[in-house]
Simulated scan of single mutants.
Amino acid sequence: MLIGDKWKVLILRDLMPGTKRFGELKKSIGSVSQKVLTAQLRDMEEKGLVNRKVYAEVPPRVEYSLTELGKSLKPILDAMWTWGEGYKVQNSERKTEQT
């Protein structure tokens, strides 16, 4: 339930290398709306996966990074990526056999 939403997996993926600002996250994720991204980040912050740091500047600058708990999901995300790559290979082989 912590990472069941497709946006959360993408947020985790994009924060693994390091801290990002909201706009950078939105751009790297793609078609997510600002409202949905904000809600997902808040939920992840409440669950202890993401840190949110607000700088007292005008305009305000907000940065997001993974907590240690969030970083501990890396092996799971890596395993999902490996599985997906294997699936793509199997799927393309299956399509080749059918033609």
Rank of each mutant, 00 (worst) to 15 (best):
M1F: 10
M1V: 15
I3L: 08
K8M: 11
V9H: 00
I11M: 09
L12Q: 08
R13Q: 14
D14A: 10
L15K: 06
L15I: 06
G18T: 10
G18S: 10
K20C: 10
R21C: 10
R21W: 00
R21E: 14
F22H: 03
K26C: 02
S28Y: 02
G30K: 03
V32G: 09
A39D: 10
Q40S: 07
L41H: 02
D43L: 04
K47T: 11
K47S: 09
V50A: 02
V54N: 05
Y55Q: 07
Y55V: 03
Y55L: 13
A56L: 10
P60Y: 00
P60D: 03
P60E: 07
R61I: 11
V62Q: 00
E63G: 03
E63F: 01
L66C: 08
L66H: 02
T67E: 07
L69I: 12
L69E: 11
S72H: 06
L73E: 06
A79H: 09
W81D: 15
W81Y: 13
W81V: 14
W81H: 15
T82V: 15
W83I: 13
G84E: 15
G84V: 09
G84N: 15
G86Q: 12
Y87F: 12
Q90E: 15
Q90C: 10
N91L: 14
N91C: 12
K95P: 02
E97K: 14
